[in-house]
Amino acid sequence: MSTRTGSGDVKQAVQDLLHDALARRASDVHLEPTGEGYEIRSRVDGMLKPIDRLDAATGRGYVNRLMVAAGLLTYHLDVPQEGQFRIELDTSAERVKALDLRLAIMPTTHGLRAVVRLPAELLQPRSLETLDLPAATYDILQHFAAADGGMLLMCGPAGSGKTTTIYALLEHIVQRSSGLSVISLEDPVERDLPGVTQIEVTPFGNLTYETALRSILRQDPQVLALGEIRDRATASIAVQAALSGHRLVSTLHAGSPEGAVVRLLEMGLEPYQVASSLFAVVSTRLLRRGSAEAGYAGRVPIAEVTSVTPAVRQALLAQGEAGAIRSAIESADGFVSLRAVAASLVHAGVTDEAEVQRALGG
Rank of each mutant, 00 (worst) to 15 (best):
N64C: 14
L287Q: 05
T108D: 11
I140F: 06
T3D: 07
D192Q: 10
L226V: 02
E94Y: 09
A225S: 13
K49V: 08
R86G: 04
D192R: 13
A322G: 12
L128W: 01
E353V: 10
V14F: 03
A104G: 15
K11I: 12
L22S: 03
V116A: 04
E82K: 10
K49G: 11
I105M: 06
F144Y: 14
S127I: 01
I237W: 01
S337L: 08
Y272Q: 10
V96D: 05
R263C: 14
L66I: 09
H246N: 07
R65F: 10
V305F: 03
A212W: 03
D100A: 06
R285Q: 06
P257I: 04
A225R: 00
G362A: 13
A332D: 08
A168H: 00
R65M: 15
R117N: 12
S92R: 12
F279E: 02
A328D: 13
A21Q: 02
L103P: 01
L360G: 06
R232H: 06
A21M: 14
E258V: 05
A348F: 09
C155M: 03
A324F: 14
L99K: 14
L103G: 02
R358C: 15
M1Y: 13
Q15M: 10
A348Q: 15
R126E: 02
G227F: 00
A146P: 03
G111P: 06
A332I: 12
T284C: 09
G245Y: 07
Q219R: 09
R60F: 07
T130C: 08
V305R: 00
H253C: 07
T306S: 10
R299C: 08
D16H: 07
T91D: 15
V29D: 00
A238V: 00
F279S: 06
V261L: 15
G295T: 05
G349K: 08
L226P: 00
Q12Y: 13
T306M: 14
V223H: 02
L31H: 04
G320I: 00
L66D: 04
T74W: 11
A354H: 11
P301I: 03
S236N: 09
E210L: 02
V223Y: 01
G179W: 14
P107N: 07
A26V: 09
D52F: 12
P119Y: 09
T165R: 02
R117Q: 12
G59H: 03
R4K: 11
S2C: 10
H143A: 06
G349V: 07
Y75N: 14
R313Q: 08
H110P: 10
D9M: 11
T284P: 03
G150W: 00
G59L: 04
L17A: 05
S236F: 00
V336W: 01
T306H: 03
T109C: 11
E266V: 12
P203W: 09
V96L: 15
S344D: 07
T163K: 02
T130A: 12
L185N: 00
L269I: 07
I237G: 01
T163I: 10
V300P: 01
E171V: 07
I183P: 00
H143M: 09
R41F: 13
Q175F: 06
